[in-house]
């Protein structure tokens, strides 16, 4: 059983996994708290924190666009990579099919996010 020397293309997915893992480890819990709990339940932050005007202005700003894209895309790629490996862990063969589903969904999510960020205007 001599090892094959075919180069793995995993670094692409691993790098995205690592970037998303780091970003979500640093600010993930706070983001969930802000968008999922504080704003809907009216805790801590002003009631109009996520009003249409506020969020639209943020999404039209270049830095805002970059932040939104980084969060959505990197979170998706991080999760896709972990789920891909977890499927392998529970016995789903880590072949082309699993790869297409996991990474394919992350790619689709990234494209939709990029499209929406263009569609909201500048």
């Amino acid at each position: 059983m001599k090892p094959t020397l075919k180069r793995s293309n995993a670094p692409i997915f691993w790098a995205l996994f690592g970037a998303g893992g780091m970003l979500s480890a640093l600010i993930g819990p706070m983001l969930v708290f802000i968008t999922g709990l504080a704003v809907p339940l009216g805790l801590l932050l002003p009631a109009d924190t996520m009003s249409y005007a506020h969020v639209l202005a943020f999404a039209r700003n270049w830095a805002g666009k970059a932040f939104i894209l980084a969060v959505i895309a990197l979170f998706l790629w991080h999760a896709a990579h972990r789920i891909f490996h977890s499927l392998h862990d529970v016995g789903v063969h880590a072949g082309t099919g699993a790869k297409l589903v996991c990474y394919g969904l992350a790619l689709v999510g990234t494209v939709i996010a990029a499209w929406a960020l263009l569609a909201v205007g500048f």
Binding site: G20, L56, F75, R82, I83, H85, A116
Partner: peptide, 23 residues
């Protein structure tokens, strides 16, 4: 801890839906 990825994915999905609604 690998399973936390399911929540990360679902949360990103909710944000993505919000972004599309914003557009």
């Amino acid at each position: 801890h690998e399973g936390t990825a399911l929540f990360v994915a679902a949360y990103a999905g909710i944000l993505l839906a919000g972004l599309v609604r914003l557009a």
